[in-house]
C-alpha cells in the first residue's frame, strides 16, 4: 500500500494516532473538560466525582456521581437528566443544561459519555 520505505515512519505515527482513542482513559475524554470548567458545565459546583482523582471539589449540593452506569444503564436516561433535570424534579436546583441552552447538544453528548464512565 502507501507504506513504502520513505513513508514508514509517518505511517507508523498515523496508525498510532488512529489507534489512540481506543486506549483513552476516562480522564482524557473531551467531555471531562466541559463538565469541570466553571464557565461550561460547572458540575463540580454541586457534585463530587470520587472515581476521577482530578475532580477537585468539596461539593455537597448534589448526589455523589459514581457507579453512574449502574444508576443509569440507559445512556439516554442519563442524557435526559443532564438535558432537563426539572423533568424528574420540578423544583430541582440543577441547571437545565439543554433546555436552557447552557451547553450545546454536542457538548451534552460529550458530558454524558464522561459522566457515564464515572
Amino acid at each position: 500500500m502507501m507504506c513504502m520505505a520513505t513513508f514508514r515512519i509517518p505511517c507508523a505515527l498515523l496508525l498510532l494516532a488512529l489507534s489512540a482513542p481506543a486506549t483513552v482513559a476516562a480522564e482524557d475524554l473531551p467531555g471531562r473538560e466541559i463538565a469541570h470548567a466553571q464557565e461550561k458545565g460547572n458540575c463540580l459546583a454541586c457534585h463530587r466525582m470520587p472515581t476521577d482523582p482530578g475532580a477537585v471539589t468539596a461539593a455537597t449540593l448534589g448526589p455523589v456521581l459514581k457507579n453512574v452506569r449502574e444508576r443509569f444503564p440507559d445512556r439516554a436516561a442519563l442524557r435526559a437528566q443532564i438535558w432537563d433535570a426539572s423533568a424528574k424534579n420540578r423544583d430541582t436546583i440543577m441547571p437545565l443544561y439543554g433546555r436552557h441552552r447552557i451547553l450545546t447538544e454536542a457538548e451534552i453528548d460529550l458530558v454524558t459519555d464522561y459522566i457515564h464512565g464515572l
Binding site: L44, A45, T57, A58, A59, L61, L96, I102
Partner: peptide, 21 residues
C-alpha cells in the same frame, strides 16, 4: 438567569451546603 437560581435557592434552601469549595 440562565442557571435559574433565586437568592433563596442558595442562601436559604442550601445554606451550609458546599458549592465547589
Amino acid at each position: 438567569g440562565q442557571m435559574n437560581f433565586a437568592c433563596a435557592t442558595c442562601h436559604l434552601h442550601n445554606a451550609g451546603g458546599v458549592m465547589r469549595m
